[in-house]
Write a protein that binds this DNA or RNA. Structure first.
Lengths: 145, 145
DNA sequence: CCTAATAAAGACTAAATGGTCTGAATTGAT
DNA sequence: ATCAATTCAGACCATTTAGTCTTTATTAGG
């Protein structure tokens, strides 16, 4: 799809949606979220359960249930999400998958990639959900096609 | 594996190997390449056939056969390889896969990602095979674990 | 206490990706 | 001409990822 798996993309868009939705009510409904964002409901459910198990979200069953943040949204970075879904090494590993690739005995792309992955990682770690929420409320940002 | 598919990683490492091997003989043997680089032979064959069909490589069957470059290695960028294997939009599309994501009505990551993908694309397009070959000959670069 | 709405759990299917195998076509060397 | 080494072609299998379905446990509200 892109450089991220669809699981990961769903997770990111979903937490952004959750950040917006939980401003007006205690829990964001997964079914509603799936409809709004055009994602398969059951699949989204699994992705969010994963985030719940990892302490990003809490959930409530039953009527008016859904998911909310376990920690303050300002304390959750997009990197937290990506690392849970894609594994912790996306921005650490060699681009060519070589085991001992590093400054000594590098692969042909090591130098350039080492700088780039640092930037990429920073992109995700510096982005706060709270900033995104504001943009979504003002409709200057969007989460759907 | 990484942000690139294993097909793509194989393709990149293979052309780098080919650039090195064809300095001393007309064709690089695919079987030898598969052994040296630790890749499944038949799978690598397919990946290289793909590059042959797209005019990056030429091949020769029979004894002493193998693959060589169809164009001068200095005229082939790593981006050419990546775009053939991963499709032409890896560094163009929205990170969240949204259709009309752009400067007006952007997704929450658009601004940051637009800058980043440009860099990433540049990383691949600016890297010349010839530079890599030199490093490989001097053993300051490597293609295996 | 009931009931409807909801998330959790897990079995299952579908599609994409990675990998294997066999046989045919081609080539260089003997 | 023959033979061994090689790529090419395509069928096939395995693994991973994406997606579906059904059942159970839980919750709020009447």
């Amino acid at each position: 799809m892109s450089i991220l798996s669809t699981r990961c993309v769903y997770a990111l868009r979903a937490v952004m949606y959750t950040a917006l939705a939980t401003r007006t009510r205690p829990y964001a409904s997964i079914r509603e979220m799936a409809n709004e964002l055009g994602m398969p409901f059951h699949f989204l459910t699994k992705v969010l359960q994963d985030l719940t198990r990892h302490g990003i979200l809490t959930s409530s069953r039953g009527a008016a249930g859904g998911v909310a943040f376990a920690r303050a949204p300002t304390e959750i970075s997009l990197l937290d999400i990506v690392e849970i879904v894609e594994g912790p090494e996306l921005f650490t590993r060699c681009l060519l998958g070589l085991k001992g690739c590093g400054d000594r005995k590098p692969c042909p792309l090591h130098r350039a990639w080492a700088a780039e992955r640092k930037r990429l990682k920073a992109l995700f770690s510096k982005t706060r959900l709270s900033d995104i929420t504001r943009g979504l409320m003002e409709h200057t940002l969007r989460l759907t096609d």
